[in-house]
C-alpha cells in the first residue's frame, strides 16, 4: 500500500501579533496543535519509531507555550533574556522538534531526518545540535533541577525572564524532582513553572498501578508550590494559566495538566499500548482522517476518564498553597 501523503507539509505558523485577542490566540494555538499532531504522526510513521502517545498528550501544552506564552522567537535563541522552556520528558523529542518547526525555529524539511543516521534530530533532544533546545534530556528526573538552576540565575540577575519545565507524571517517581522542588521553594522561585503532563500512564502501566502519585496536588503544595489543575488539552485554560504565573508571590507554580496519552485519536487515546507503538498504514490513515476532521474547539468535547477527582476548572484558578487549602477534596 503506497501512501500519497507528502512527508513535510506543515505550514510555519509563527506568532500572532502582540495585541491579538484571546479568542484569536486560542484559535491560533488550536490550529498549531492540530498541524503539529498531523506532522508528528508522519514523523513517527516514517521514522518507524518514537513516542506518539506521550507526544500527543504534550502537544497542546507545547503549542500553547510556543504559540502564545514564551518570550522566545527564532531570532532570540541565544538572547540571555529569553524565557526558557525545558522538556524534561525528553522521549517526546518528536513533539518538541515538530513544535519548534511549526514556529520557525527549525526548517520543516529537517523533520524528515528524524532518527535517521547522523541527523540532528535524535530520539532525545540535543541543545548542541538543535536551536531552541535548552537541555539534553532523556534520562528522567533531570529537567526540573536544571530549570531550578536557570530560575535561580534569573533571580540573581534580577531578571523577569521565566522558566517553564514540562515533566511527565511517571517521571515524578524520580527523587531528583523532589530535591529540586525543595530548593525551588527554599529560594522562592516564583518565576518557575513546573507543568506536569498528567496522562496517568507510564511505559507499561498506569501510574496508579506502578507507584501512585496521588494525592499529587497535596504533595506539590506541601513542597511549597502554588498548585493549579487544568485540562491539558484545553488551549484556553492552558493559555490563561500559563501566562498568569506567578499565582502566589514567592512561590513557584505547579500546573497539573490533565491529559490523555494519544489524545485525541480514537484508538490511541488513554491507551497504554501507545506509549511507543508506531502506527501502521491503516492506523496512520485513520489517525490522519480524524485529525483533519477536527475543528478548533474540539478539545472542549474531550471526555476525561479515569480521573480521581475530575477536572478542576481554573477560572478563577484553583490555587492551593498548603495541603488541602481551598481545594475541595473528593
Amino acid at each position: 500500500m503506497t501512501l500519497t501523503v507528502e512527508h513535510t507539509t506543515m505550514p510555519v505558523l509563527g506568532r500572532l501579533p502582540i495585541h491579538s485577542s484571546r479568542a484569536e490566540q486560542v484559535a491560533h494555538i488550536a490550529e498549531a496543535a492540530r498541524q503539529i499532531r498531523i506532522q508528528d504522526l508522519k514523523l513517527v510513521h516514517y521514522a518507524g519509531a518514537g513516542h506518539i502517545g506521550g507526544d500527543y498528550s504534550a502537544i497542546d501544552i507545547l503549542a500553547t507555550l510556543y504559540g502564545a506564552v514564551l518570550n522566545i522567537t527564532p531570532d532570540m535563541v541565544t538572547d540571555p533574556e529569553r524565557d526558557r522552556f525545558i522538556l524534561s520528558k525528553g522521549h517526546v523529542a518528536g513533539a518538541l522538534y515538530t513544535t519548534l518547526a511549526a514556529f520557525g525555529f527549525l526548517p520543516v524539511d529537517d523533520l524528515a531526518t528524524f532518527l535517521k543516521p547522523l541527523s540532528a534530530l535524535n530520539g532525545h533532544p540535543n541543545r548542541r545540535k538543535v536551536a531552541g533546545v535548552e537541555a539534553n534530556t532523556g534520562p528522567l528526573g533531570h529537567g526540573l533541577p536544571v530549570a531550578v538552576g536557570h530560575a535561580l540565575s534569573a533571580k540573581l540577575d534580577v531578571s523577569l525572564r521565566r522558566t517553564y519545565v514540562l515533566v511527565g507524571d511517571g517521571e515524578l517517581q524520580e527523587g531528583s524532582n523532589w530535591e529540586a522542588m525543595m530548593a525551588a521553594s527554599q529560594y522562592q522561585l516564583d518565576r518557575l513553572t513546573v507543568i506536569v503532563d498528567r496522562n496517568r500512564i507510564q511505559q507499561g502501566a498506569t501510574t496508579k498501578e506502578t507507584n501512585d502519585l496521588d494525592p499529587l496536588p497535596d504533595k506539590a503544595a506541601a513542597f511549597g508550590f502554588a498548585v493549579v489543575e487544568v485540562n491539558g488539552h484545553d488551549h484556553g485554560e492552558l493559555l490563561d494559566v500559563l501566562s498568569a504565573v506567578p499565582f502566589r508571590p514567592g512561590k513557584p507554580t505547579f500546573v497539573i495538566a490533565h491529559t490523555h496519552k494519544g489524545h485525541p485519536i480514537s484508538f490511541m487515546s488513554n491507551n497504554v499500548a501507545w506509549h511507543h507503538r508506531v502506527p501502521d498504514v491503516a492506523e496512520f490513515q485513520q489517525a490522519l482522517t480524524e485529525l483533519e476532521a477536527v475543528v478548533p474547539g474540539y478539545t472542549k468535547e474531550l471526555r476525561m476518564t479515569e480521573r480521581s477527582e475530575g477536572i478542576i476548572k481554573h477560572s478563577p484558578p484553583r490555587v492551593s498553597s498548603a495541603p488541602g487549602a481551598k481545594r475541595g477534596r473528593g
Partner: peptide, 20 residues
C-alpha cells in the same frame, strides 16, 4: 541546595544556561 547531589549538579547546569 541542601543534601541533594543530583539536584546540585542539575541546578549548576541551569545556572550555566542562565550565563553563570
Amino acid at each position: 541546595v541542601g543534601i541533594a547531589e543530583q539536584d546540585m549538579v542539575g541546578v549548576a547546569s541551569g545556572l550555566a544556561n542562565g550565563g553563570r
